[in-house]
Nucleic acid binder design. Structure first.
Lengths: 333, 333
DNA sequence: CTGAAAGCGCTTACAG
DNA sequence: CTGAAAGCGCTTACAG
């Protein structure tokens, strides 16, 4: 790589580097004539200030980091896009950093390359969280509830999602219901089931252990789980199923159809998240809508408020809302 | 933010910053005793070397940038993931940078924050491309054919994709075929249609202008286009349709079904790309498979070869292959 | 209005 | 084996 430095520009223009720096930054008084001349040379030499040299002194890098474990799946696109848009408006760039190992992530956060971080990574330990806190690095978590002077969280109210699903199925008259559980030990999986059970309990319905199948948030796993349940044939078919996310709801429907059950005529299925595909699927999926772009937008705003206004961090929960489509129907009596 | 610098560590450990730097980098001989002591202090103070200071001198940042216009859609996840994995193995981090304006992208590339770039952005002009070339910045393009000492391209052979689709439909006996065109002025749109037409021509089939509908790579647009075509009712129904990508194929199928046509019994539909959804859809979509993870992997390898081995850039085309599922069937005579 | 100089946090010959 | 010093590419008081 051939780098053109401020020195090269200064020499070429016949001025000091101070003058070049000032005309570029707008700080300091420069005569119209000098300014124009310097700008002309800068343009001609295609000079771009080195990021590292520039920010070594100036500190703020005006870039924020979004740390994720993967970019696969439909969520991340919406999330990242919203963060990007919100950041751009405020003059910040966004770097999406894909990383698994939490120790490496910590280095990336703490090595001064970014002004703040938005983190979606359950692998960050309690200890590492503490470190972020000590070093006063502005952070917003998307997967846990932590707040401090420089730390915020913006998460979905998964308990509420489950509660809404339970209430809806109950209202439809179903009382033999099943659940496709999400990823093991995942916050959302746990909360969605908890909310679901609490809602059902209010209607006097409990959900037996055998009716909790494991979908791991995956289509295939969910499909196999429901097929296995049906093949076993030990328990009567549920009238309705709440799947912990849309993808596993699709898998569940696929399994049901393979075994000859119609959705929603024989079994109602409700999902969670409301990914784009819900609208295309046959039957169109009834689900609980969670807006990832809202999450991204709010996360960025919170982060910016901490960085620029020195605001104190906080925890915000986003509520889902039900989107009724075609995959559920009232119990036929 | 509270930054712990190498100076702080040196003072705390009672050694020079040279010693701290050496024990951390492994360069220079340090006694076992000093090394352990320094490491202990580093650990205790949670010292992480500043990225900017470190690389200002050392030049290489060991991070490569992936520049995209958006992260929405299913392609980017696979692409970014593959690049990430390939880069990790070689000790490189990856920063996905979402950006639209090509001038801003140029600054991000040229300001020395990355060692090389993988670019998926048609907005980069000829002039800007020239600039990259002059500055000898290692770059691989994912959306154009450019090669130079430090510049490579790795693209899909979209002409071949179209050709395969045409040959397949022809083999099925169809001779009244339509096409759902992709995005206007897009390289892939153009090439896919060109390959498709060439293949058909070999079988003596031409595709009239009226049978080229505009889907813009979008589901809804494709759906409306085919519905409008049917409503107009001026031309006989095509026996088979090649959609420029899978998403518009889904839209096309949806439109056909709305109008009472069955796929593939009444009309065969073939897509292009082979996104995950093809496997789930009803009917499962026959399509041309393009592997975005292969593209990402190869792009990263090419880039690394240019950066580390000083290899010369080159252009590589990836061929698609047909994946036959359920959305096409032979012409019934 | 302009420039010499100090300094940001690091690395790296070089001397001892 | 250890450290003082130069230097990476910038910015920013400060002097003139």
């Amino acid at each position: 790589m051939k780098r053109v430095t401020i020195k090269d520009v200064a020499k070429e223009a016949g001025v000091s580097i101070t003058t070049v720096s000032h005309t570029l930054s707008g700080g300091g008084a420069i005569s119209q004539k000098t300014r124009e001349h310097v700008l002309e040379v800068v343009e001609r030499m295609h000079y771009v200030a080195d990021f590292k040299g520039q920010n070594l002194k100036a500190r703020s890098t005006k870039v924020i980091g979004l740390f994720v474990r993967t970019l696969r799946g439909t969520y991340y696109g919406d999330l990242a896009q919203a963060i990007y848009e919100e950041g751009s408006n405020a003059g910040y760039g966004i770097n999406v950093i894909i990383a698994n190992q939490s120790d490496k992530i910590m280095v990336d956060i703490m090595n001064g390359r970014i002004d703040g971080a938005i983190i979606l990574n359950e692998g960050i330990t309690q200890k590492e969280e503490e470190l972020l806190r000590e070093h006063e690095i502005p952070v917003v978590f998307l997967d846990r509830e932590s707040a401090d002077k420089h730390m915020s969280s913006i998460i979905f109210d998964s308990y509420e999602d489950g509660r809404i699903a339970g209430e809806y199925l109950l209202g439809l008259g179903h009382n033999r219901v099943a659940h496709i559980y999400g990823e093991e030990n995942n916050y959302d999986s746990i909360e969605r089931l908890r909310g679901f059970e609490d809602a059902l309990a209010k209607g006097g319905v409990t959900i037996p252990r055998e009716y909790i199948l494991h979908g791991n948030f995956e289509r295939e796993t969910a499909c196999h789980a429901i097929e296995a349940f049906i093949e076993e044939g030990k328990y009567p078919m549920p009238e309705a199923i709440f799947a912990s996310n849309d993808v596993s709801a699709f898998g569940c429907i696929e399994g049901l159809q393979k075994k000859g059950y119609r959705v929603p005529e024989d079994v109602s299925v409700i999902g969670c998240d409301d990914i784009e595909l819900c609208e295309w699927y046959v039957p169109k999926l009834t689900t609980i809508h969670n807006s990832f772009s809202t999450q991204g937008k709010k996360a960025m705003r919170l982060l910016l408020a901490m960085i620029e206004q020195n605001d104190t961090g906080k925890i915000e929960k986003l509520s889902g809302r039900i989107v009724i489509r075609e995959s559920c129907m009232p119990k036929v009596i």
